[in-house]
């Protein structure tokens, strides 16, 4: 009881502390020195309409590589921990109730649509909000829908591992290409920059984001499949 009261007090304190933030949203302020430098330079340097993408992939590209590596380590840890023996759960698939025919059929129709929508999101990361991570999660959502519709189904492990390794290698390879052909590691100016707002613009950013998206999607799908619990 005491603990709950303390937690609630802390929550109310947070709400009070963040209250001024709610009133600042509509106020247009001058961006700071760093922000205005980014806003000014990134369309000129990389021809990326979405400044956030230019920051994430190019200016802070090394951070993103680290994030992808951390995600890989986390999913590998989940996969290693949640094998069937470790959980001590013997035949979980037998107890699970089957989904209706309606959900299975709808999954068959929706899967292609969701995979394509994920591809749209990570290929247009330099034009619209979203990018590799969001697109990867959408692709993982498609796999999740399949797991929900048929609990006994197996995801093709070989394909997943191949996609993950290939896209990871592509990501690092593009980064090295930037080091040799342009100004440094992960510099996207190895391809022509193109015109602002077209699909084939911003140098190698769409390719890098596609590699990140496929890698994140494959990793999260593998993690969800491990969580399903009845794998060998």
């Amino acid at each position: 009881m005491m603990r709950k009261v303390m937690v609630m007090l802390a929550l109310a304190g947070f709400a009070f502390a963040f209250l001024p933030l709610a009133f600042m949203a509509g106020v247009v302020k001058e961006p700071g020195a760093l922000a205005s430098a980014y806003l000014e330079n990134s369309p000129r340097d990389f021809a990326a309409a979405n400044v956030v993408t230019a920051i994430v992939v190019s200016y802070r590209g090394f951070d993103t590589l680290g994030e992808v590596a951390v995600l890989f380590a986390a999913t590998a840890g989940v996969g290693a921990l949640l094998t069937r023996k470790r959980l001590g759960v013997s035949e979980t698939a037998g107890n699970k109730r089957e989904a209706t025919e309606i959900l299975r059929t709808a999954t068959g129709i929706l899967t292609g649509l969701l995979v394509m929508f994920g591809a749209y999101i990570f290929m247009h990361g330099h034009l619209t909000p979203g990018g590799g991570f969001q697109g990867g999660v959408v692709i993982a959502t498609a796999v999740l829908l399949n797991l929900l519709a048929s609990p006994g189904a197996r995801v093709a492990h070989g394909v997943m591992t191949a996609v993950e390794s290939l896209s990871g290698a592509t990501y690092v390879g593009l980064g090295l290409l930037g080091a040799f052909l342009a100004w440094g590691f992960l510099d996207p100016r190895t391809l022509p920059l193109g015109t602002l707002g077209a699909l084939a613009s911003a140098g190698a950013i769409p390719l890098i984001y596609s590699a990140i998206g496929l890698k994140v999607g494959a990793e999260l799908s593998g993690m969800l499949e491990a969580l399903k619990g009845d794998r060998e």
Partner: peptide, 21 residues
């Protein structure tokens, strides 16, 4: 993205409730 994720979340909750997760 919001509508899509909401749909999958609701389906996951329904599958949990009927004991199929």
């Amino acid at each position: 993205v919001y509508g899509l994720v909401g749909f999958v979340g609701v389906v996951a909750l329904a599958r949990y409730l009927e004991g199929g997760l």
